[in-house]
């Protein structure tokens, strides 16, 4: 009974909270620019509206065009459910669940890129090609970060992996994971979530041909992924497992909020990079994670 309640509450949290984050980022951006900005709850309205809207499909699209967003969404929800939530721990942790998390993110990527290619539009091709190619570097960085945490904690279960602090390499790890978060969630300086019609976009170009309920599912999934990465980053850096429960919960919430603030500030202060420089920046993120791994390795030996 308790287990069921725990699962339902977690699921509710992971489903209801994420659309708040893009609203908060927009508020931060508006605040920096001195504007009033859209309401914080804007995405909730958008999702409700889209769910009611009609669907227009391309002549060329197969059923995969509608199925793939559902697959990506389920994969992201599954990945989120694997993640421990601060003091409450994970819903079902098992040895090696962290690898499953990485591969669930990859499944979501496969589905999104597949749906983008369904319509035969060159835009979809561009976006999907960029998404899957840059993800090679982000996945390498993510796995290096996981390795570093695993060396630090001697475990490959998310709950114990994320409980202690990241140790001496925490700053390196935070920097690397923050870059991964920005790239994976299509934020500035890798991508610009505000424009749709540029040839230079990644994620927004991939979802260009979607409409109605499938688009709602995609947007919800994207915000879920943002929350997932913020929680992962916070838990990787802060020693939440070592704190008393309420402090840990507050630290988690504070961490997620400061990540969101960081994203908003980066977005306000930086311009999007030229595509040539994206791999360079991602390689830097990978190297940061790799150095934090080496620091963790040496720290343990000493």
């Amino acid at each position: 009974m308790i287990v069921m309640l725990d699962l339902v509450l977690r699921l509710a949290l992971w489903l209801l909270l994420p659309p708040l984050l893009p609203g908060l980022i927009n508020k931060v951006k508006a605040w920096v620019a001195g504007r009033r900005g859209p309401p914080v709850l804007q995405l909730y309205h958008d999702l409700a509206r889209l769910w009611q809207k009609d669907v227009v499909l391309s002549n060329l699209a197969s059923p995969g065009f509608v199925i793939a967003p559902a697959v990506a969404w389920v994969a992201l929800v599954g990945a989120a459910m694997l993640l421990p939530l601060g003091p409450t721990g994970a819903a079902f942790g098992f040895r090696g669940d962290v690898l499953l998390l990485v591969y669930l993110l990859a499944l979501a990527r496969f589905a999104t890129a597949w749906a983008a290619l369904e319509t035969g539009s060159a835009f979809g091709g561009m976006g999907a090609a960029r998404e899957v190619s840059y993800a090679v570097l982000t996945e390498a960085a993510l796995v290096a970060a996981v390795l570093s945490l695993s060396v630090q904690s001697g475990s490959i279960t998310l709950a114990t992996l994320l409980a202690p602090a990241a140790g001496a390499g925490a700053v390196l790890l935070a920097g690397g994971l923050f870059a991964v978060l920005l790239a994976e969630n299509c934020r500035v300086p890798f991508d610009d979530p505000n424009t749709h019609l540029e040839l230079t976009m990644i994620h927004e170009v991939m979802v260009l041909d979607h409409s109605g309920p499938p688009l709602a599912v995609i947007l919800h999934g994207a915000s879920l992924k943002l929350l997932l990465f913020s929680v992962l980053l916070t838990e990787a850096v802060l020693p939440l497992g070592r704190l008393p429960p309420f402090v840990a919960a507050a630290a988690l919430a504070g961490g997620v909020l400061s990540v969101i603030l960081g994203v908003g500030l980066v977005e306000s202060l930086l311009a999007r990079f030229a595509f040539r420089r994206v791999p360079l920046l991602l390689t830097t993120a990978f190297l940061l994670c790799l150095f934090s791994l080496l620091v963790a390795w040496n720290g343990g030996a000493a």
Binding site: Q52, K53, V55, V56, L57, N59, V66, I67, G212, V217
Partner: peptide, 21 residues
């Protein structure tokens, strides 16, 4: 989820049109 979304998209018209380029 795939079946549910497919059903929802079908019930919301599912009109076909050429790919916008």
């Amino acid at each position: 989820a795939a079946a549910a979304l497919w059903y929802r998209a079908k019930s919301r018209g599912g009109r076909r049109a050429p790919t916008w380029d």
